[in-house]
Design a protein around this nucleic acid. Structure first.
Length: 829
RNA sequence: GCCGAAGUGGCGGAAUUGGCAGACGCGCUCGACUCAAAAUCGAGUUGGGUAGCCCCCAGUGCCGGUUCGAGUCCGGCCUUCGGCACCA
């Protein structure tokens, strides 16, 4: 009586067994090489989606493989548990965010267990629990002491939908990254992290991250946006300085006007009590009312007005008119630019529109630039002309010489500008880590002492739609005593951006047990486990989370709190899960729920399909039929092993010297599969081809059984084949392999076994089929002994007079190319 | 506009270093088993010519090049996707 593959009983049985045995606990001994395998932790939104399943299946295969290859593996999981959806749920369902989040976490944990993931749950973190956010607050204080956390009034990004401010990184195309609402500007006093102090190192150290995808590094480099140039000081007629930033100081003699950002502080002064005042006021008001998208879109028409004042060019001494225009931004560079219409496309368009003069000062070779007839700016290089003492230099030389001159004369200095802005970390929300600061009437801004952490979120708050932060209305929370003087004080009511919580969680995982109560993490623990060897997650975090985590890591390094400069050595950005040509989403109605798939086919099938259907970094097309295919394969495996179970159980090792040709061939496939799967997982993350190799092995064993009658079968060989097959499949399909492993009579877990070795001698074929080409065209195939040298190969093929005659066909032999084990190409004329 | 990636059968994909294009899976066709179906097993499945096989020709987005040999390298284009986009 054949028992059928029942995924439900098998999977729950082994999940319980593994939990009981503590199979996934992080090893305490430190004599083996460590491997820290980390997947981005989820936001506990309620249930896992297929993107999670993909992410965690990839990570789990890597973790299990590394355990089998003799590594101490740290493979932890947790929850990025603060954030807005919990608060929205509180408003609409009248349930406390904490309760809502905790129940979601419990549910998702169960789902993760049911997927057969091998996490060490003893190291679980949840960023919303006081035992975690206490240390997020501690981190804030570390940065505060370092001068990296500061408060300032600024025009900040405000999302009406979320009722809170956003960091620049959280504004995508002028819309809120979370809810898609258009972002507006608001003047507010807010907390910032001085990430710009690390701009250079964040950029420079990208070169250390060779294990990251090129495009992620490029995206970060673009985001940081470094440009080297010169800050030059023009002067108004009253002598007020107008510093401008330029990367093209070689075009300084081509300046025909200056443009200030409309918000520039000098604008009011320059226009006060002049005929230009009213018009300038109206223009500034109009620009202020524009949204950032309209303002910064290249589609938007350049607009500006002359404000009646003039400035002197510090190099040429020329006087040029001062304008204000929409395309100049206050918060980049100095908020003022020099207009060089002949050599900058923006300036060109602006000058043409307003009739400002063009002056050619860079002359390219071979073309005569005529200011009257130019249709676009010449932004390339050339020879400097009309440039006083600099005329005749190449523009590259000019860049240096003008900068030298400006510095010598004291009218300018070389400087570097970044697109990156400081990280706005205040949020006007309840469900986040409170910023550990109080404001005392006498002592001013006072950090809460570490001994008084955590600053707890009060549970009894009222959630109302659209209002201000519930914390600000909670009198018991706001009222505080000053830690310095003991006098009355007011508590900061902003909470921290949740990206702070997630920018250090990988450090928390390294530290276990009682140490966690004494510190956020310990130096020995981080010294052993950090950096993360493999980080796996979605590309959507290419800038946000990954940049913030790098910044925090560097800040902690500078404090001597950790010993690594970069947190993640290798990064794998997995593709999206697509169905019917679109990302799975509720609104498109193309969502397939993991629960349904795991329920119907089991976790092993879900994992196998999702890893087989596409390479991990590419988008994955969901296919119900493909899932069926994976399920069929596991059934095929089940029948194969259970069918042979009784006969191969207890069989010894095969005797290599006593194998028939067919047996040798099967054994060769077994050993090749071990090599292939090991290389595909360990070196390439090519899980799809690794799985296809195991399928080929299964096919080969069936082929052998088909061709060899029962009594003539080599049971030792079949036993070896079954054993190796299960071992190489174990990381992908942990339950069914464990069950079959035990059915073969093994007592301990398959997941405690070492990855099998392959025998290089067995892998080698005795004979190979080579291709014989004439002039690169395949003419015939031939079996020859393996590993013949090029000369031997040539001799084998052309040494046969009949064959040589047939191949040459009366033509003249020009040359022969022989590639061992591959081909012989005969070139004839 | 700039930067980056990709383009291979009906579909997902494979070909790892320039050396047999289409592994593996899905789908489809035919067959076996069955009263029948499902499941399972077997055979076939790039296009065209020939239509029994063999065999011949073409073929990896398009055009050209390098090479004995190109899906892979080089130049130019097309398309799709992703990122950035008045950054001075």
């Amino acid at each position: 009586m054949e028992e059928r593959y029942n995924h439900q009983t098998i999977e729950s049985k082994w999940q319980a067994e593994w939990a009981k045995e503590g199979l996934c606990r992080t090893p305490a001994d430190q004599d083996r090489p460590k491997y820290y395998c980390l997947e981005m932790f989820p936001y506990p939104s309620g249930k896992l989606h297929m993107g999670h399943v993909r992410n965690y299946s990839i990570g789990d295969v890597v973790a299990r493989f590394k355990r089998m290859t003799g590594h101490n593996v740290l493979h932890p999981m947790g929850y990025d548990a603060f954030g807005l959806p919990a608060e929205n749920a509180a408003i609409s369902h009248r349930v406390h965010p904490g309760e809502w989040t905790e129940s979601n976490m419990a549910y998702m944990k169960q789902q993760l267990i049911e997927l057969g993931t091998s996490y060490d749950w003893e190291r679980e973190v949840a960023t919303c629990r006081p035992d975690y956010y206490r240390w997020t607050q501690w981190l804030f204080l570390v940065l505060y002491r370092q001068g990296l956390a500061y408060k300032k009034k600024a025009a900040v990004n405000w999302c009406v939908g979320c009722n809170t401010v956003l960091a620049n990184e959280q504004v995508e195309d002028g819309l809120c990254w979370r809810c898609g609402t258009q972002v507006t500007k608001k003047e507010l006093e807010q907390w910032f992290f001085r990430i710009t102090a690390y701009a250079d190192r964040l950029l420079e150290d990208l070169s250390l991250l060779q294990g990251w995808p090129e495009r992620v590094r490029t995206m970060q480099a673009n985001w940081i946006g470094r440009s080297e140039g010169l800050e030059l000081t023009f002067r108004t007629e009253d002598g007020d300085p107008i510093p401008v930033f330029t990367t093209r100081q070689d075009t300084i003699f081509g300046v025909s006007y200056i443009v200030l950002a409309p918000e520039h502080p000098l604008v009011a002064k320059l226009t006060a009590e002049t005929e230009y005042e009213d018009e300038a006021d109206r223009f500034v008001a109009k620009i202020r009312s524009m949204s950032d998208i309209d303002r910064t879109s290249t589609e938007t028409e350049k607009e500006g007005i002359f404000i009646g004042a003039y400035a002197t060019n510090p190099i040429s001494g020329e006087s040029v008119p001062i304008w204000i225009a929409n395309y100049v931004l206050l918060d980049y560079g100095t908020g003022a630019v020099m207009g060089v219409p002949a050599h900058d496309q923006r300036d060109f368009e602006f000058a043409r529109k307003y009739g400002l003069p063009l002056k050619v000062v860079i002359q390219p070779e071979g073309v005569e630039l005529d200011p009257e007839t130019m249709t676009a700016a010449h932004t390339e290089g050339g020879l400097m002309v009309n440039s006083g003492p600099f005329s005749g230099l190449s523009n590259e030389q000019g860049l240096e010489r003008v900068a030298d001159f400006a510095e010598k004369e004291g009218v300018g200095r070389r400087t570097i500008n970044y697109r990156l802005r400081d990280w706005l970390v205040s949020r006007q929300r309840y469900w986040g880590a409170p910023i550990p600061i109080v404001y005392c009437e006498k002592c001013g801004t006072v950090p809460v002492p570490e001994s008084e952490l955590p600053v707890l979120l009060p549970p009894d708050v009222e959630f109302r739609p659209g209002g201000e932060s519930p914390l600000a209305r909670h009198e018991g929370f706001v009222k505080a005593t000053c830690p310095t003087c003991g006098g009355p004080a007011r508590r900061e009511t902003d909470t921290m951006d949740t990206f702070i919580c997630s920018s250090w969680y990988f450090l928390r995982y390294t530290t276990a047990g009682a140490d966690r109560e004494r510190a956020a993490f310990t130096r020995p623990a981080t010294d052993y486990w950090m950096p993360v060897d493999q980080y796996i997650g979605g590309i959507e975090h290419a800038v946000l989370h990954l940049l913030y985590s790098r910044f925090i890591t560097k800040a902690l390094y500078d404090n001597g709190l950790i010993g690594v400069r970069e947190p993640f050595t290798n990064l794998l950005t997995q593709g999206m899960v697509i169905k019917d040509g679109a990302k799975m989403s509720k609104s498109k109605g193309n969502v397939v729920s993991p629960e349904e798939i795991v329920g119907r086919y089991g976790a092993d099938t879900a994992r196998l399909f999702i890893l087989f259907a596409a390479p991990p970094e590419k988008d994955l097309d969901w296919s119900d039929q493909g899932v069926e295919g994976a399920y069929r394969f596991l059934n095929r495996l089940w029948r194969l092993v259970t069918g042979l179970r009784e006969t191969v159980r207890g069989a010894g090792r095969p005797d290599p010297s006593a194998l028939t040709g067919r047996e040798k061939e099967l054994r060769r496939i077994v050993h090749r599969t071990i090599r292939k799967v090991g290389e595909d997982i360990g070196e390439r993350f090519a899980f799809n081809t690794a799985i296809s190799a195991t399928m080929e092995l299964v096919n080969a064993v069936y082929g052998y059984l088909d061709q060899v009658p029962g009594e003539q079968r080599n049971l030792e060989l079949l036993g070896e084949a079954m054993e190796k097959l299960l071992l190489v499949l174990a990381p992908f399909a942990p339950h069914i392999t464990e069950e079959l492993w035990h059915q073969l009579g093994r007592a301990d877990s398959i997941h405690l076994q070492l990855w099998p070795d392959y025998d290089p001698e067995v892998v080698k074929a005795e004979e190979v089929e080579i291709v014989i080409q004439i002039n690169g065209k395949i003419k015939r195939r031939q079996l020859v002994p393996a590993d013949l040298s090029a000369d031997q190969l040539q001799e084998t093929v052309l040494g046969d007079p009949d064959l040589a005659e047939e191949l040459l066909g009366g033509k003249q032999l020009v040359k022969v190319i022989a590639v061992p084990n591959k081909l012989v190409n005969v070139v004839v004329r």
